[in-house]
Structure formats: C-alpha cells, structure tokens
C-alpha cells in the first residue's frame, strides 16, 4: 500500500514536471520514460514474447484434442477459410502485420493446429487457463480474443487458410 502511494506521488510529480516541459516542445509530448521506473523491468527478449515463442506441443484447452493435417493444402477449404476469416477475424487480425492481435502468418511453425483451433473456438477459457494465451493477452494490451462463434468446420477452414499464408 505504502509502495503504491509512493509510486503515485512519484508519477504525479512526473506528470506536473512533464506538463511544464510540454509547453516548450512543438512536436508533441514526450517523457524520459526510463526515469519513471524505480526498478528497470527486465527487457523483453523477442524470444520471450508469446507471439514469437515456439511451442509445438501445447494443444490448448477446448473441444479440439487431435487433428491430422493432410500434406497437401486443401485449396477449396482454404478459400472457404479466407472467406470466413475476412468476415469474422479481419477486424483484429491482419495478414503479415501485428494489429489488434498477432498476424496469423506461419502460425503452424509456432503452434499446434489444435491450439489454433481451440484459441478460435474457446477463447474465453483459453485466456484463463492456457499459459500462451494468457501471455498473448498481456502482450496485446489486454485485448481479449473475441469469441466469434465459429463452427468447428469454419475454424478448421480458417486453419487451412493459415497454411497458405
């Protein structure tokens, strides 16, 4: 509690200070953020980030326990998956770029297909119980993965589409 209070006082004084500084600047607002921290947080190595972490074992929590992918991509299914993706997922996920959520490119090099489908089908439980999903939630500013109500068949098609990216 005391610590918290001290932190507040510090931050507040910083705010006052920085406001003073702002008037001089024409290019907007900036703060020397390193000063703001009493103890330096561990710098996040890119390999620690949940979005780049590779885990090809975890299957996640949800209805999908095991699926087998054919070696060849099923193009018709993938096309259908793109349609579903554009309608239901595009608001938060962009191809080739981090957006509200991570980009789905090459996701199967980092995740099991089961994990991907469970994340689509059962996000509420995933962000509570699956460590990767929990870490992703923090990495992505607390934006929860929305449950878009896809059927298993639709989620499977989206997965197939991801294989083409």
């Amino acid at each position: 509690m005391k610590l918290c209070l001290r932190g507040f006082v510090f931050l507040f004084s910083l705010l006052v200070l920085s406001c003073g500084e702002k008037e001089k600047k024409k290019d907007g607002f900036s703060v020397d953020r390193t000063k703001a921290k009493t103890e330096k947080p561990k710098p996040i190595k890119s390999s620690d980030k949940a979005s780049v972490r590779v885990d090809l074992k975890t299957k996640g929590v949800g209805p999908i326990t095991s699926i087998t992918l054919e070696t060849e991509v099923n193009e018709a299914m993938a096309a259908n998956g793109k349609e579903v993706f554009d309608k239901m997922c595009l608001a938060c996920h962009r191809i080739g770029k981090k957006f509200i959520g991570p980009a789905p490119n090459k996701i199967l090099e980092r995740r099991t297909p089961e994990w991907v489908m469970n994340m689509i089908l059962n996000p509420d439980q995933m962000v509570k119980e699956d460590q990767l999903a929990k870490d992703l939630l923090i990495e992505f500013n607390g934006s929860p993965m929305a449950n878009q109500g896809l059927t298993e068949e639709q989620a499977r098609a989206v997965l197939e589409y991801f294989r083409t990216l």
Partner: peptide, 8 residues
C-alpha cells in the same frame, strides 16, 4: 458490430 459473442 462484428462481435459474435453473447452480451457484447
């Protein structure tokens, strides 16, 4: 509204 979840 692109949500497809209950009560959002």
């Amino acid at each position: 509204n692109h949500e497809q979840d209950y009560d959002v």
